[in-house]
Design a binder for these strands. Structure first.
Lengths: 360, 360
DNA sequence: TGTAAAGACCGTAACGGTACAGAACCATTT
DNA sequence: AAATGGTTCTGTACCGTTACGGTCTTTACA
């Protein structure tokens, strides 16, 4: 496991210059085939493993890899459908470009940004971290191109995302058209601190996760415009993004306000949990309770969830493409992908309004 | 995005040595708090982003990351349950060690090994690649510690795995005990070339994927010992690891040999496909046809599959631990994890033998 | 035969840091 | 007054490579 030989020692052994040995590996056309053969053979004999990648990176200023920063523990990324799909898209772009993908271990608990500083990469992709995350700050300080995804726009970096506010506005209008006025909302974590429970207006507006803030803002604006008093709408937050969270959050809202006719969840995972809780309570969806999600994951499709579909794989791929596309351009660039309202079977007119609504 | 300042220019600006600036970042106790404050403030003023990670890696000979080599396209890793679980385990170990995880883009189609050479990592984990894979060879040439998983033992590197042959022997004996003598086998790819169809004895024995070879060998040995003529056992291979492959492979075997009483699949994914195909043909499992898998993925559990459970997450974690554990030891080390025969509801006595078997 | 072009190889100067040994300074101790 | 020890800072020697701008030799062609 030692590194016995270097390019220099090889050159000395062969009686040629270091440049020539380097060329044997990187520019075969720059030396005679015969000499190249000798170089490679001697390399084999001395156990020289070829040019050291780190030294090469230092000299060429290219690492051949992009760093990925996630808000969660590394291992979490491999459990979350949504994150996985994004990663798959990003990986596709990396493959095309022949670039490696370095997953940076950014423990959200500790504020240890050393891992960001140590990452030898040509660029970063930052996926859905809170806007006050110290790891994000550390990335932004690094003098490499960066693409953020599902983040607010920043002056200095490219961005990929959807128009969360617009997308959920369509959903909200759909529910309003159906006649819903008494609603509850289940959302994902809004900040780095855990707050499993009802969310104050302040916290909603100060949310550090762009995506959640935008969705709540879209809901608030749309329902307010329709005459719903948003301050009276129960909004429950869950730190962990699991179906279990969706269940308990739905329970919390239904306990406090059994009169609501629709439960709007800001993710499909949460919505699937809400469905489970509704079933447990003997509420028929959608007849007794309308439930909606957001994301358009396959499981939601199977469950017939009314939701908003977003192209997650495309987001990953677009992020990679932005990073690898080094054409002239004026930064920052923004790619906003299209979303689609998916009308499933979990939303209908509120109970008791069937006739009134469609009547004369 | 330029890198305007370096440690040297900072030092010049401040009128101190480069060492002192370096210490301000890496050894705060080596200089007075006052000077350190000045250094960091000047750094901010000049836009110095802190020591360059690549240069640091060159000097310290530490990259702070491990490379991961997979047999598949990068993006595939994010789609396969089994690979994901392994990755999750590996990621856990990486987190604990504060190391990054670099996914090396090793396209199995092209023989382009450059990505392996360019990877600035402190070690490699190689997961289930064929033993003649050029990327594997390239990794072995690199002077860094390496752990292989689901591979045959190699002289120079550590290994993590299970005893595939022993594990499937237990399964085979279970089926023999139930009375099965006429069986068919569905296996995953055995080499780098695509061969979707029946597998010759030669190809079975020359398989380049250790795991598959060991499992086939275990089956051959066990059934032969019980008097079954292995040369007459239909073995069908599928290149793609999908349930669709399982379906078509099962069909291929059942078409050729409708008389078999058990279909042994070397993975749960394939077995789940086989179940689908059996259902399509109106065969009741296990009454008309016994189907078994291997791996113990959650979906198999849900389907009640009779299978062998292996600790995939643990494999990943163990691989990481081996890599990070730098204690004195004599290489190569081997970690062999335990497996467990899971008796589900998809295997029973062969049709027509019910009485004979349990009778007097 | 002269001259340009091409081919093969080389020397030097970075790339941006950290390790290590030691120097300068000051306050205590002997 | 000399020795001791701790703190703070410095100088030099690398880490292993590639970029760049040469030189020298050979070949091609008029």
């Amino acid at each position: 496991m030692r590194r016995p030989a270097t390019l220099a020692s090889l050159a000395a052994e062969l009686g040629v210059s270091r440049t020539t040995v380097s060329n044997a590996y990187n520019r075969p056309d720059q030396l005679s085939p015969e000499l190249r053969r000798r170089v490679l053979e001697t390399a084999r004999r001395l156990g020289y493993p070829g040019p050291d990648p780190v030294a090469r990176s230092l000299r060429t200023r290219k690492a051949g890899a992009v760093g990925l920063l996630l808000t969660e523990n590394l291992s979490y990324a491999f459990r979350d459908t949504h994150a996985l799909t994004f990663l798959e898209g990003l990986a596709l772009a990396c493959e095309d470009a022949g670039q490696g993908l370095l997953m940076v271990p950014a423990n959200p608990e500790r504020e240890d940004v050393a891992a960001v500083h140590r990452a030898g990469v040509d660029g970063f992709v930052v996926y859905s971290v809170p806007d006050d995350d110290p790891h994000l700050a550390a990335v932004l300080e690094r003098p490499v191109p960066t693409v953020v995804c599902d983040q607010p726009e920043l002056d200095t970096v490219d961005r990929v995302g959807i128009d969360d506010q617009l997308a959920i506005t369509h959903l909200a209008r759909h529910l309003l058209d159906l006649g819903h006025r008494r609603i509850g909302v289940v959302c994902m974590r809004l900040a780095r601190d855990r707050n499993d429970g009802f969310v104050s207006l302040d916290r909603q507006q100060a949310a550090h996760f762009h995506v959640q803030r935008a969705r709540l803002a879209g809901l608030a604006a749309t329902f307010s415009a329709a005459g719903v008093d948003w301050t009276q709408v129960p909004v429950v937050e869950r730190f962990d993004h699991t179906t279990a969270s969706g269940e308990s959050a739905a329970a919390q809202i239904l306990d406090r306000d059994p009169g609501i006719t629709a439960l709007i969840c800001t993710s499909d995972i949460l919505a699937l949990g809400a469905l489970t809780e509704a079933r447990r309570r003997g509420l028929r969806v959608p007849h007794d309770l309308t439930v909606t999600g957001f994301d358009g994951i396959p499981e939601a499709d199977r469950a017939g969830l009314t939701t908003v579909r977003q192209p997650v794989l495309e987001k990953g791929r677009a992020a990679g493409k932005l990073l690898f596309d080094t054409h002239e351009h004026s930064r920052p660039r923004t790619v906003t992908l299209a979303t689609e309202l998916v009308v499933g079977t979990t939303a209908t007119v509120p109970r008791g309004q069937d006739d009134r609504w469609f009547g004369p």
